[in-house]
Design a binder for these strands. Structure first.
Lengths: 196, 196
DNA sequence: ACCTGAACACCGTTCAAGT
DNA sequence: ACCTGAACACCGTTCAAGT
């Protein structure tokens, strides 16, 4: 890459990160190019699709997620590993508003720039899930697709301003379905204040 | 309403139903007007916002939902009533792809044409939830906002083509979190085949 | 080798002008 | 009283022309 192209690329990415943080994953790409002081074509050459841009923005988070799964498998109980990783997963998908819809669409589309990252995420989750199931602590009838779906649903809920305040509680509720025997997961006991 | 206006209104609604069924709640309104053979302004006068159009399309379903809640309260066990109504609720929100996002946004926006319907839905659910909680069969720490959130999340999952095939199973999983003591809800037993 | 921005085909929304 | 569609300000995407 020519040094001027490299500079364009990096600046574009920095501006995109700002704009997407503010406006979400469906931000205007025209706006990104404009704010970066760059021609539209330059943006499209560096990032041929919205997914490609998002993938680059989330790259390091995705990598950290995979790494974290391996660490947790070695260091934590099957139960704690699954809960902790799931939480991180949701935070990662929630990094940019609206990103989760694109990720969900990508899991079934090998053409998408987000495909590999999402498959990796699903696989990491699958390992932790199987491990917890072997221990009898996670629901036996969950497939990795189900875990990915539940994580996606929680990330989507967090994206909705009306539900965001109850995000933690909703996580607990869904967790209790994944790990029915979880310590302190007695659903008859009030764990979080329930507003009217 | 003048009879020609009435005719326009009804034809517009019929065409809108078709288009929205095909393309989802974010279908082009221009396209609806075009296919109805009507000026854009005509559509906007009858339905000042996308929400207004959707509200009209879903009107009878919303009414049926409220009615059904009352029926179930009288005729079924607290547990069965909540499960059955929740299921209907999801089907209703899922009637048009993408409608759930607009509904979720409407719950906190009294200006939205969908606001009242969503509040009614939430209230109906709240009654059934409280009843089930009084019986000790539903999680005590769930607020009506949580139930609405979980219903929304399931409706959203159903909207995603990659998750739709596992919709029923995902409903069972989330149900087991809402009703931990539900008959046959033993999560250690395999209830639905889990594909690899 | 890389960049630009006009061109094209679309949106949603408003509102002057028509019947 | 109702209808129309041009006008405006936006999109995403492509690609000929420039440096």
């Amino acid at each position: 890459m020519r040094t001027d192209a490299q500079k364009n690329y990096e600046h574009l990415l920095a501006v995109a990160r700002e704009v997407v943080t503010e406006q979400g994953a469906h931000a205007s790409l025209r706006d990104v190019a404009r704010k970066a002081g760059v021609g539209l074509g330059t943006l499209y050459r560096h990032f041929p699709t919205r997914e490609a841009l998002l993938e680059t923005l989330l790259r390091s988070s995705f990598d950290a997620l995979t790494e974290r799964a391996a660490e947790l498998e070695a260091s934590s109980s099957p139960e704690e590993a699954l809960v902790s990783w799931t939480q991180r997963c949701i935070a990662c998908a929630h990094e940019y508003r609206g990103a989760i819809s694109l990720m969900v669409a990508a899991i079934d589309d090998p053409q998408s720039a987000l495909h590999d990252s999402c498959v990796a995420m699903k696989s990491s989750g699958a390992r932790l899930l199987v491990r917890a199931q072997a221990e009898g602590v996670a629901r036996a009838d969950l497939a990795s697709a189900d875990l990915f779906a539940l994580i996606s649903a929680l990330a989507w809920l967090n994206d909705q301003p009306s539900f965001a305040p109850r995000a933690e509680h909703l996580f607990d509720v869904v967790s209790s379905a994944i790990l029915p025997q979880r310590t302190g997961n007695d659903s008859r006991k009030r764990r979080t204040p329930a507003p009217r």
